[in-house]
Design a protein around this nucleic acid. Structure first.
Lengths: 123, 123
DNA sequence: CGCTTGTTCAACCTCTGGGTTGACAACGGC
DNA sequence: GCCGTTGTCAACCCAGAGGTTGAACAAGCG
């Protein structure tokens, strides 16, 4: 058992690692579209695009309803929350560290070299 | 020329698609560490971890300074901004669409079927 | 009923990703 | 000056991703 949300994050990040799929998401943010419509701008077979959509679907980023023989694709933004939460958590932690480091440096070097907190060279 | 920030996003998302690398990032958020320290908890060769770090470094998520024979690894959270910006942009777009669709449905079905905005079947 | 349209399924190919092992490079300690 | 520690480089292996083509399937339309 590898933790459910870990798996979801794996799929979500992997899905968005491909520029074609990010582009698909970008276009779907504006409007739902059929596979054919989505495939049109790319120099790529329809089947390839269909595969990309399957990846996005498996990642939970997209849902494909079935109306007549068309299968309009719809962006489902919910997974985005999971990703931003993950990122924000560790970004916050890292920044908190910086903050503390700054404080430490200032208190250590308080009377010698007051300014210059966390510049590129902390040597 | 494929757009510089596209490349960076490719690498960033791909880097975080691997659970081991996300774990490395998570641990580095708390404190810098050497390769050996980082590798210890995993059932995996040191070289494999070194490779993972190289990927993270290429993605700009991590920097490896070289002090003596140790190479302490440091998390560089800057790229996170690029990712969250990308995600937030399209999440916002998608949600804006929902909002407008809701409004449309309400105004269309105002006297026939007032409630029920954006349920699964919009047929 | 049979054709056309829209999409998926299946088989296949190639290249990359993640892992291994073995050799070697850079230091610090004694 | 040599040795142990720390980490990288190089070659290799295997599984899976991303692409192709060709066939099949489902639903409207004549």
């Amino acid at each position: 058992m590898v933790d459910e949300s870990t798996e979801r994050l794996n799929r979500a990040f992997a899905a968005l690692a491909d520029p074609v799929r990010r582009d698909l998401v970008a276009r779907l943010a504006t409007a739902d579209a059929t596979v054919g419509e989505l495939a049109e701008p790319y120099d790529m077979s329809l089947q390839a695009v269909s595969k990309h959509l399957k990846v996005l679907e498996a990642a939970g980023l997209v849902t494909r309803s079935k109306q007549a023989q068309r299968r309009p694709v719809h962006l489902d933004a919910e997974v985005f929350d999971l990703m931003t939460k993950w990122i924000e958590r560790y970004r916050a932690e890292a920044e908190e560290r910086y903050r503390r480091l700054d404080a430490l440096l200032e208190s250590t070097a308080d009377d010698t070299n007051t300014a210059q907190s966390r510049t590129k060279d902390a040597s």
